[in-house]
Design a binder for these strands. Structure first.
Lengths: 291, 291
DNA sequence: TCAAAAGTGTTAGTATTACACCCATGT
DNA sequence: ACATGGGTGTAATACTAACACTTTTGA
C-alpha cells in the first residue's frame, strides 16, 4: 500500500503504486454446449439430438494430453466477456449465443503452477452458428450425458449429509470415458451447504470435470424456469424440436401434451410449416418474449 | 510462459516461473444480512423485524469516507472461504451462518487503482450470533429495503428491453440514503440477457450498491425454493417468526394459513411453546431437513 | 397402405389463493 | 373483557400428470 500523504482522491490515485509482490492469475473457462442433430436412416424418423460440450486437448504442461475447457488468462485491461469471446474465437460469435457467468473456482491448489482463479461461464450455442472452419485436431465436441447412479445419506454428529453420485459420460471421436461426481448436500443444525467432489481421473485436466458437471446441473435447473432453451434453436422451430431440446438436456422423456401446455405462453405460432418427412407437417413457432 | 524443454509434468513444474508482469488483484466482498427484532412498546404486539446489511466506512482512498461492503484481498495461499471469514472476524462465526458465492465482478475500471476482481459472497447471519464487541465506529448495520418503482419497455431494432427500476433505501444511525438501480432484461432475437445499472451516488463506494442489490434479489429468489430462511432464525422458532423472515425479505405481507401450508414439510413441531406476551402461546418448530 | 409424428381432449389429483372463523393468553 | 396474535377450515380456481385418441403426411 501507499504511504505518502494523500489528502484528495486525485492525489491518491496519482501516487498509487501497483504492488510488486506475487499475485494470483485470473482465467476464464467456458463450458460451451450445443445440441446437434444426428441424421437417421429411416426417412420417417426425426433426427436424434445430442448434447455436446466443447473440449480442447492440452498441448502444454500441466496436464499435457488431457482434455480441458477452452479458457485463457484475462488480459489486464480486458473485459470478462471479451475474454470469453477471445477464447471462443473461430468457434462461434457470442453475440448470437446465450452467455452466463457460472461460478469462480479458487481452491489454492487447483492449478499446480500457482494460484489461479477460474471464472467459469456457461454458453449455449445454436448448432447452426458454429464455425466449422477451425476444426483443428485440438478441439472436439464431445457427446455428454450425466446420470444419477445412487444417493446415500450419512449421519453426522450434528446433522446429516446427502451424497448423490452422478456419472458424466463423454463420447468423442476416438476417446470415450466416464467420470463420477458426487454432489454433497450437508445439513448441520439448521444450516445447509453444498459441495462437489470428483475422483482423480486421467482424462480431464484441472478441476474442469467439476465445472462441467456444475454447468450441466445449472442448465437443467434453469431450463425449467427461464427461456434459455430457445438459444439452442433457430429463430423458427417446431414444438417437437423444442421438446427434444428439453429432453436432451434433462435426459428424460416428457409427455407431449403436457409439455406443450407448459411452454404455451413462451411461444407464438407462425403461418409456416416444416414439410419434410413422411409424416404430418408441423407448424413453426417463434420465441415470445412477453412475460 | 516457460520456454525450457520440459518432457514430464514434474520437470515442467520445477522449471515453472511465475510471470513477473503486472497482474490483477482478487478480493472477496461480503454482503452480510441479518434480521433483527426491534422492540415494541405495546406488550401485546410482536416485535417488528428489520433486514440489515453490514457496511464499513472507508478510511482510505479511493472512496474515502464512503460506505463499502466488508472485503479484502485474498491471500496468495488463502482459501476463499477463509478470506471471507477473515473479513468478518469479530463480526460472526461463519460456521454458524449460511454462506454462498454470488458473482464475480470484473469490469476493468470498477476500481480506479488498477484491475481488481471482486468475488462477492452472500451470508445470512442469525442475529443472536453477531459478535457485538467490535462495534467500532467503522462498521454499521444499516436497515435495507428495496422497492420496485417502475417498469418501462424500450423497443430495439431487433428486440426489446425491459427496465425495472428499484430504489434501495439505507437507513443508518446518522445517515440515510436512497440509491436507484435498474435491472435490465434484454431480448434480442430469441436471446435473453441481463444487466444492472446504478447511477453515480455519493454514499456507497465502488460498484458495491450493485452488489447489494444483486444479493437481495438473489435472496428473494432463493427463499422461495430453498430453506435458507432458517439460517436467520434460532434452532427453535415459531411459525410466525418464520413468516416474518419471509415478509421482511420479500417486503410484502403473506396470508398466514397459506404460508403455513407452503412451508409445512420443511418444519417439524416440538412440544415446546413460547409463552411470552398477552396472547395465546405459540408452538415452537425446528427445521426438518428431510427433502 | 402405413409408420411416424403432429396435434388435441379428458380426467383425477394436487397446489394455490382468498377469506372466514374460532382459540388462548396476560394485564 | 379485550386486544393481540395463534391456529384451522373451506371453496374456487389453477396447475400437473397420465393417458387416449384423431389427423396428416411421403414413399
Amino acid at each position: 500500500m501507499n504511504h505518502q500523504k494523500n489528502t484528495t482522491e486525485a492525489d491518491f490515485l496519482k501516487n498509487y503504486q501497483v504492488e510488486k509482490y506475487e499475485k494470483p492469475s485470473v482465467t476464464v473457462d467456458v463450458v460451451a454446449f450445443t445440441i446437434t442433430e444426428e441424421s437417421e436412416k429411416n426417412y420417417r424418423k426425426n433426427t436424434d439430438k445430442k448434447l455436446k460440450v466443447l473440449l480442447m486437448k492440452r498441448n502444454d504442461f500441466p496436464f499435457h494430453g488431457r482434455w480441458a475447457l477452452p479458457g485463457g488468462f484475462v488480459g489486464l485491461r480486458e473485459d470478462l466477456q471479451a475474454a470469453v469471446q477471445r477464447v471462443l474465437k473461430n468457434k462461434t460469435d457470442l453475440s448470437k449465443a446465450y452467455l452466463e457467468q457460472l461460478y469462480t473456482w479458487g481452491e489454492p491448489d487447483r492449478d499446480p503452477r500457482h494460484r489461479i482463479f477460474s471464472i467459469s461461464y456457461l454458453t449455449l450455442i445454436q448448432s447452426a452458428n458454429l464455425k466449422v472452419k477451425d476444426s483443428s485436431k485440438h478441439y472436439e465436441w464431445f457427446d455428454l450425458s450425466m446420470n444419477k447412479i445412487h444417493t446415500r445419506t450419512e449421519k453426522l454428529p450434528d446433522g446429516e449429509r446427502v451424497i448423490t453420485a452422478h456419472v458424466l459420460t463423454f463420447h468423442g471421436e476416438k476417446e470415450s470415458f466416464d467420470i463420477t461426481i458426487e454432489f454433497i448436500q450437508t445439513v448441520k443444525e439448521h444450516l445447509i451447504s453444498q459441495s462437489y467432489h470428483i475422483a482423480e481421473n486421467d482424462f480431464i485436466a484441472f478441476d474442469h470435470a467439476k465445472i462441467i458437471a456444475y454447468a450441466l446441473k445449472r442448465l437443467r435447473e434453469k431450463i425449467e424456469y427461464t427461456p434459455i432453451a430457445f438459444s439452442l434453436l433457430p429463430e423458427l422451430f417446431t414444438l417437437t424440436q423444442l421438446q427434444q431440446v428439453y429432453e436432451t438436456i434433462l435426459n428424460k422423456e416428457l409427455l407431449k401434451a403436457n409439455f406443450r401446455r407448459k411452454i404455451a405462453d413462451m411461444v407464438t405460432e407462425t403461418n409456416e410449416y416444416k414439410k419434410d418427412a413422411g409424416h404430418r407437417p408441423s407448424k413453426l413457432y417463434r420465441f415470445n418474449s412477453k412475460l
